[in-house]
């Protein structure tokens, strides 16, 4: 039961990450991100039930509140001011190629995390490659998407992946550390939201490739 639930949660993580790559509507991308936050919270909840730890339950609730409710809300608010530019129209790598890249990245993550899994084989550690895949897909989104909001989602995807790897490898890195990381992410999103708004006010667009003149 525990293993199945854990795998289900991890599968949801991976699936939502791939869906973020697939869909172009920014509203859908944000919804996928919220779903992923919920999957992450479920993952932590499963671990908490297994470990029977109240602290981990608290973390699960916190993760849900932050990643499935607060951050998607902030992103949606940023999008509301965006007007018509609600689609990721011209990604640097098209969608089908992105999906193929995601497959390659998954393979890479599995190949790389073998030594980690071999250190202490268990149901949780065997799911580590999923976390690493999410990190790599998040990075891929950062590299290939033009809209500031998709970049933000990519960044948060990476963070979700890192958190997932943390929980899977160590069953919780401690409440204080998790709290600190969460606050960090929240602050980063708030700042980036402000910056996105400013960018739109200045350039009328949030295409990051317009920012070429900022070097030197």
């Amino acid at each position: 039961m525990y293993v199945q639930l854990l795998d289900l949660a991890c599968g949801a993580l991976l699936l939502t990450a791939v869906l973020v790559l697939w869909r172009r509507e920014l509203t859908v991308i944000i919804r996928m991100f919220a779903l992923q936050g919920a999957a992450l919270a479920v993952l932590v909840g499963v671990l908490a039930a297994q470990e029977n730890s109240a602290e981990l339950w608290a973390v699960a609730v916190g993760v849900f509140a932050l990643r499935a409710v607060v951050l998607p809300y902030l992103l949606r608010r940023a999008l509301a001011g965006a007007g018509e530019s609600r689609r990721e129209t011209r990604p640097l790598v098209n969608v089908s190629a992105s999906l193929l890249a995601a497959a390659v990245l998954t393979l890479l993550a599995y190949a790389v995390s073998q030594p980690l899994v071999e250190l202490a084989p268990s149901a949780a550690t065997q799911a580590i490659p999923v976390g690493i895949t999410v990190v790599l897909i998040g990075f891929f989104v950062l590299v290939t998407r033009r809209r500031a909001l998709s970049q933000l989602v990519g960044f948060l995807l990476m963070d979700n992946g890192i958190t997932a790897v943390g929980f899977l490898a160590t069953t919780g890195v401690g409440l204080v550390v998790e709290l600190g990381v969460s606050l960090d992410v929240l602050l980063a999103v708030l700042v980036l939201q402000v910056l996105t708004t400013r960018m739109r006010e200045t350039f009328g667009d949030t295409d990051l490739d317009e920012l070429r003149e900022l070097r030197d």
């Binding site: 590299v143 290939t144 990051l208 490739d209 920012l211 070429r212 900022l214």
Partner: peptide, 8 residues
């Protein structure tokens, strides 16, 4: 060249 995507 100044492209954020290139740096990333």
């Amino acid at each position: 060249p100044g492209s954020v995507h290139r740096y990333l």
